[in-house]
């Protein structure tokens, strides 16, 4: 098994996540695409940890998972609050701060 096949798979997942972030209108689905990108990063961290025979890759993968969980909690709370105030969870309708 080569390192490139795992790294390219991570890159593919990350690109799919970028596409989802750009194309989705619903804020919950945007957060879901961000989770895809975080998963891609996790796969890359573990793969390079194996490649360099270094345990730090897996440790940082665990940190990324913890931060992703916190991010989802806060993100969904914010989406909920916006939905409650504006009856919409579409990112293109949230132009309150646009000049």
């Amino acid at each position: 098994m080569t390192i490139a096949q795992f790294a390219i798979l991570g890159g593919l997942l990350f690109s799919v996540g970028v596409y989802g972030v750009l194309v989705r209108r619903n804020a919950v689905l945007v957060l879901l695409s961000v989770e895809l990108m975080m998963t891609a990063v996790n796969i890359n961290l573990v793969a390079f940890g194996r490649f360099y025979d270094n345990i730090s890759g897996q440790i940082f993968s665990l940190f990324v998972i913890a931060v992703a969980a916190a991010e989802v909690g806060i993100g969904l709370a914010i989406v909920l609050l916006i939905f409650r105030n504006r009856s919409s969870a579409n990112v293109d309708e949230l132009d309150l701060l646009r000049w």
């Binding site: 098994m1 080569t2 390192i3 490139a4």
Partner: peptide, 15 residues
């Protein structure tokens, strides 16, 4: 990403 990875690592094997 693919170009960068292939340029850098080629077919380097995992342990």
């Amino acid at each position: 990403i693919t170009y960068g990875i292939v340029e850098l690592f080629g077919d380097a094997q995992l342990p």
